[in-house]
């Protein structure tokens, strides 16, 4: 497996310069968490890396191959992408939603071959939804649905997994469940990139943190190197302090700073 790299990547959305000159190399086998204030360009970065959006300048490559010259099916097998706040339009069963993750392999959800079925079952088990296979996805709670959709992305078994706010709708226990799944996926060799707002959990689970602000890359390093009080003040506009705990640290946001 090879690295995902962006070189002077810029994306323009209408008049808005969403990303400016991003240079980034993300190695496989690591969980990279992207943080940044609202509107920083996090989702745009993820969409661009997923090949869903073309940059106005620069390039993004996977193992040296441009993401936009890959064939759609090959890209879908290589890069799994989970958008933010996904919905399911029809009351499809959880099993058939997860089975959609096998489409890039040319496997119809109602006729999965043995390894496809195995991948679906493993993905459902990984997110703790065993016993929910036949439940209509539209009748799940927000957290259950979010996990079902994550299982869909996992079921593809792509070497790259890009997830946009996977824990936004989850309760504390399932936040940990999902982050452990992502971490384990990275440990198994996958290149995992997740957008998150919870800085403490980001610090605890991420191997690397990418800090974006106003479309620019502010920092890309280990959690303790990126999440400093000074950077939190500058990028997030908050007065925060870092409380060191055994085995990690906690980001305590104290108060918003006046807008500059």
């Amino acid at each position: 497996m090879s690295a995902l790299a962006a070189r002077s990547l810029s994306v323009r959305l209408g008049r808005n310069q969403a990303l400016s000159g991003i240079d980034l190399t993300l190695p496989p086998g690591r969980l990279t968490v992207v943080v940044g204030p609202n509107g920083a360009g996090k989702s745009t970065l993820l969409r661009t890396l997923a090949g869903l959006m073309a940059p106005s300048e620069g390039s993004a490559t996977l193992g040296g191959v441009s993401i936009w010259t890959m064939r759609a099916a090959e890209r879908a097998r290589t890069i799994a992408y989970l958008p933010q706040g996904g919905q399911v339009a029809w009351p499809l069963s959880v099993a058939s939603v997860v089975a959609l993750g096998r489409l890039p392999h040319g496997e119809a959800p109602d006729a999965l071959p043995p390894d496809g079925r195995e991948a679906v079952a493993a993905a459902i088990a990984a997110v703790g939804l065993q016993g929910y296979e036949d439940r209509p996805a539209t009748e799940l709670s927000g957290g259950e649905r979010a996990r079902a959709l994550l299982a869909r992305a996992l079921a593809t078994r792509a070497p790259v997994l890009l997830v946009d706010e996977p824990i936004a709708a989850l309760d504390p226990r399932h936040e940990l469940v999902v982050l452990e799944v992502l971490k384990a996926h990275a440990r198994a060799g996958a290149l995992v990139v997740a957008i998150m707002h919870n800085l403490t959990l980001a610090a605890r689970f991420a191997d690397e943190i990418v800090l974006l602000d106003r479309g620019r890359l502010q920092a890309h390093d280990t959690p303790s190197a990126v999440l400093t009080e000074e950077r939190l003040a500058r990028s997030f506009g908050i007065a925060a302090h870092i409380a060191h705990e055994t085995g990690g640290f906690v980001v305590v946001a104290d108060r918003p700073l006046p807008q500059t």
Partner: peptide, 8 residues
Amino acid sequence: ETAKSLGI
């Protein structure tokens, strides 16, 4: 978006 990411 998901459909596109699945190669559709």
